[in-house]
Design a protein around this nucleic acid. Structure first.
Length: 308
DNA sequence: TATACGTGGTT
DNA sequence: TAACCAAGTAT
């Protein structure tokens, strides 16, 4: 990894172009007027609130995260509070947000924060990245949103905005590329506080206006400067965007099995799990996978429970 | 780099 | 209605 990936204040002001600077004010002004009032964005929201939201928002829409986030912060207001719980309680409280391994990783991250960071969410990008379940995006997001630092924050919304505004294509590539990182660096404001605002603003613009299906270009503050619009809004021409199959997959079986475990306050008998899926080989494979992932604990005599 | 990993709303 | 989409990470 090069130092460029850290996006430190020292490293990037040289790459900001005048054209990039012309985008900053309109987008940030738009954000001032249109930003949603989300709990993790309020002035009294701490880094822990931001971090919990980022875990929950990985591949999950805001509207579904809202109530669960509120419950989590009320129940576990500090990382150490969550760390003191069993991982199974985290999985149970995760409810139907999906990808329950995120609950396990957030619980593990809380443990690491309690143990290695004095109970405070770390400020350093590298320290955040070292936490379980924290990747490049989440580390940058927490450092930027919670601590006001200057980082490129490349989530699916920002990538789509930049693909259109800067690159002139309808959609970003399937996986984040070095070219996208260069584009993002070139657009990132030099000033730290402005960069943090820019990160949140571009994300919100992608979420509310520059959407995947039917962008509201009439509401966009930079429509007149958008490379994609100026090119006539050409349709996506790259490789097909990989869909996520679900029906009939192990993921669906895992979901059903875990739903039974979550609903039960205590251990569950094999028969209750067998009832959720007819095909025994796939059912066994899914259950083994859940055990392997630490989401389920096998007890003696074919009884299972959430991890303690 | 490609794939596995939940869930539910929208078009 | 089947496909697409949603603040990604780990392997």
């Amino acid at each position: 990894m090069s130092t460029d990936l850290h996006h430190t204040p020292e490293s990037a002001s040289t790459t900001t172009t005048p054209r990039a600077a012309a985008l900053h004010d309109p987008v940030i002004d738009w954000f001032d007027d249109h930003a949603r009032d989300l709990p993790w964005r309020r002035p009294d929201a701490g880094a822990w609130s931001v971090m919990v939201s980022e875990f929950m928002l990985q591949q999950t829409p805001v509207v579904r995260v809202l109530p669960v986030h509120e419950q989590w912060l009320a129940r576990w207001p500090r990382p150490a509070d969550l760390a003191a719980e069993s991982p199974g309680e985290a999985v149970r409280a995760w409810g139907r947000l999906g990808y329950p391994r995120r609950a396990l990783r957030l619980h593990a991250a809380a443990g690491a924060i309690a143990q290695r960071h004095g109970g405070e969410v770390p400020r350093e990008h590298a320290e955040l990245l070292a936490l379980p379940g924290v990747g490049e995006y989440t580390a940058a997001a927490v450092a930027s949103f919670a601590y006001g630092q200057r980082h490129i924050v490349l989530d699916t919304n920002v990538r789509r905005v930049f693909a259109r505004v800067a690159t002139g294509v309808a959609h970003p590539p399937n996986a984040t590329t070095a070219a996208e990182r260069r584009t993002a660096e070139g657009l990132l404001p030099a000033d730290e506080a402005t960069a943090a605002r820019w990160a949140a603003a571009t994300m919100e613009l992608g979420a509310l206006v520059c959407t995947a299906r039917s962008p509201q270009c009439g509401q966009c503050p930079v429509a007149a400067m958008c490379a994609w619009r100026l090119a006539g809004c050409p349709p996506h021409d790259g490789p097909p965007r990989r869909g996520q199959s679900y029906a009939g997959t192990d993921r669906q079986v895992r979901g059903r099995l875990l739903a039974v475990l979550r609903a039960s306050p205590g251990p569950v008998a094999q028969a209750a799990l067998d009832a959720v899926w007819h095909e025994p080989v796939q059912r066994a494979r899914a259950l083994d996978g859940l055990v392997e992932d630490g989401l389920v604990e096998p007890l003696a005599d074919g009884v299972y429970r959430l991890p303690v």
